[in-house]
Each structure stands twice: as structure tokens, then as C-alpha cells.
Write a protein that binds this DNA or RNA. Structure first.
Lengths: 189, 189
DNA sequence: TGTACATCAGTGAACGCGCGTTCACTGATGTAC
DNA sequence: TGTACATCAGTGAACGCGCGTTCACTGATGTAC
């Protein structure tokens, strides 16, 4: 093997990291492969050593994120309502809205995914299911736990989707606060 | 006036209608001016007789929608919880998801708006405010009415944003149903 | 140990293509006289 | 009433540009002997 054996792996990871950040901030269609590769410190042609197409890169960035979230919810048995509350407060926050490098694709890329292939949608779906699973694990309610978890996930996503599209900071904060308040009541009702 | 006086008005309305449908279905960036004009039965060059730029067309389609929604909520005094319930059931439905010509831009174009200019965002914000105002008018609760209305709007939007990005029809329906259920409980609590 | 070679991640020029926008033109209509 | 003209919504060729993708090439490294 004529290259340092870890180099290709490192380059791939770097491309994924740059792609995630740029896609989250500017959108899948707006970001060119050139821009991703330049951000990763590489040049355009090398891209196809790592991915077959731009869409495959998109799918890979989502899979990467889904994988991390899935491993977080695995093997937790006891409900911890405080964890659910903390996650909501972090998810539905201005800080999350501005942190493109770590932003949840559910709020960063919904339209982009809606128009992508089934393959991309199925990866995105894993992220939705990981968020719902987190609620199902940690919500402590006498009501239908599954239904509450689905509604909580939708509400958090909705609050952030609206928050990021709204120019008026105060109004955006009002929406986020309203959903946090509602969530706290739902998490242990 | 050498042309039938209503012709320009009719053409403009037709361009707006085609643009709204195509933007909702395929997204702002994916749809070219050519395609909009062809759908409207016209050719590309004429576009600039009606709009200064593509972004202005985007803004105009949103303004058109906002204007219609705003006039619906004006001058209603008495709360009608049944109207709120009906609107939720229609908003959070598969039918709404598939009806691109009349789809709410809050769920069709969130990412596109998030990346657009402040001017576009401010028009989009009017649609959000119209939805919240509808809830404030019609929700009948002993809790904080404003907060409940904001949370309801976010939840409906979140349910639909997720629903349209999810490939698995059953899972999408489960999310929609969970939010409808939660909304019914919130509308007269 | 030293040398010739094979490997392959990365390079960068080039490709065809569709985009948003411009502009000189067309031709049906209403107006002036 | 008839004719010459002005208007302007709509046309379609052309523009410069950036895109996703291809491909012949480079050159640092590990291997064979």
C-alpha cells in the first residue's frame, strides 16, 4: 500500500464533516462538490475516489448522524424524564439553530430530503425514529407513551423549522419557549 | 392600450399559480423560470415584464398565500373550537401533503425560505402569524392561550414536515395521528 | 542495503449542460386625425 | 370610415457562469528482489 494506510479513511471523514456542516448551513443543492472538497482541504477530482455521486455523499452524511443517535438510545432501560427535558431544552434552542456542524438534519434539511430519493429518505427516517425512541425511553406518562413521544418529536422539529425561517428573533424565541413549556408538561403527565 | 387591458393581470396570476405549484412540489432552486413560464403557457423572456428577478417571484407567491390566510382570520370574534379542530384535521393530512397547488408554504418550503433573503422570510412570517392567530381566535382553553396556539402551530408544521420526508407511509400516518390527537386535547382543555 | 517498479489518493483541465438574465424583435391592438 | 402610427406583452436567440462528472496525469509511498 503506497499511501499511509489511514489517509483515505481520514480524508473521507473530513469530507463528511465538511459536507454536513455546509449542507446544514446552505442546503444540499446550494453547496457544490468543489466547495465541500475545498473546505475539506482537497481538490474536486478526488471526490470520486470516495463517493460515487453527490447524492451518495448526502446519504452518507445522514447515515453518519443517524448512526450516532442510534447508539445513544441503545440499551437504556429505565425512563429518565430529566434527560428528556434536557434534550428538549437543547434541541429547541437558539444554540442548536446556529451550530451548523452538529445540527440535527431533521431541522436543517427537511425540504432537501423530501425531494431526494427513497434511499435518502430511509436514512433520514432512522434519525426520526432515534428521536422518537429517545422519548419513548424517557417519557414518564400515564397517557399513551408512543403517541406522546411521536407528538413531542413533531413539536420539537416544528418549533425549530419555524424558528430558523423567521426573521424576527423575539417571535422565534416565543415559539421555541411555547414548545419547551408544552413538552415539559407532556414528559411527566 | 394596444393589448386587451386584462391580459397582463391574467398572465401574472397564471405565472404565480404555476410558480406556487411547482415550487411547492420541486423546491425553489430546482424549478427554473423556463419551467414556470412553460407551465403558465408562456415563454421565458416575458417573465421580466412581470417580475424583476426569480427571488421576487418567490416572495410574490408567498405574499399571495399570506394575504389569503390573513383575510380568513380577520374580524372573527367568538372562539369556535370546532373550526380549529377541522383546520388541524385538514392541515395534518395526507390530502394536504399531496395537494401541491394549495399546500401551505410552511411545510412545502421551510428550507428554501431559511436560506432566502430577509424580505422573503418576513413574508413567510406572515403565514406563521396567520396560523397562530387562527388558533388564538378559536382555541378555548383555561391555560395560556397564546402559548397553546404557538405550540399547536409548531406541532402541526412539525408533523407535516416529518410526514413528507418519510418514505414509510404507515409511520408518517402514525406521526400525523399523534399530533391530531394531541391538538384535539389542547384545543379545549 | 539498494534499486526498479507497482499502487493509488489526490490533482486540475476539460466536458456537456442548464441556469438566470438580457435584448433586439414581433405583431395584435387601440388611438389620432 | 379609413389609414398610419405608437404601444407593449410576449418571443426566442444569446450571454456568461457554475455545476456534476470524467480522465489522463502526478508523485509519495510500500514492495520485490
Amino acid at each position: 500500500m503506497p499511501f499511509p494506510p489511514e489517509q483515505k479513511t481520514r480524508s473521507r471523514a473530513q469530507i463528511l464533516q465538511s459536507a454536513r456542516k455546509l449542507f446544514n448551513q446552505y442546503g444540499y443543492t446550494e453547496v457544490s462538490i468543489d466547495r465541500v472538497m475545498a473546505d475539506a482541504g482537497l481538490t474536486r477530482g478526488g471526490f470520486y475516489n470516495h463517493f460515487d455521486s453527490k447524492e451518495e455523499l448526502f446519504s452518507a452524511t445522514l447515515a453518519d448522524f443517524a448512526c450516532n443517535r442510534e447508539s445513544e438510545v441503545a440499551d437504556v432501560m429505565e425512563p429518565h424524564p430529566e434527560i428528556a427535558r434536557q434534550i428538549v431544552r437543547h434541541y429547541v434552542s437558539r444554540q442548536h439553530q446556529d451550530d451548523f456542524a452538529h445540527q440535527c438534519p431533521l431541522i436543517a434539511l427537511p425540504s432537501d430530503v423530501a425531494r431526494a430519493s427513497s434511499k435518502v429518505k430511509q436514512v433520514y427516517e432512522r434519525v426520526v425514529k432515534a428521536l422518537v425512541a429517545m422519548f419513548e425511553t424517557n417519557v414518564d406518562t400515564s397517557l399513551d407513551k408512543r403517541q406522546q413521544s411521536l407528538a413531542l418529536a413533531a413539536s420539537c422539529v416544528g418549533a425549530m423549522v419555524l424558528s430558523r425561517t423567521i426573521d424576527d428573533d423575539e417571535f422565534a424565541a416565543e415559539i421555541r419557549d411555547a414548545v419547551i413549556q408544552m413538552s415539559e408538561e407532556m414528559i411527566d403527565a
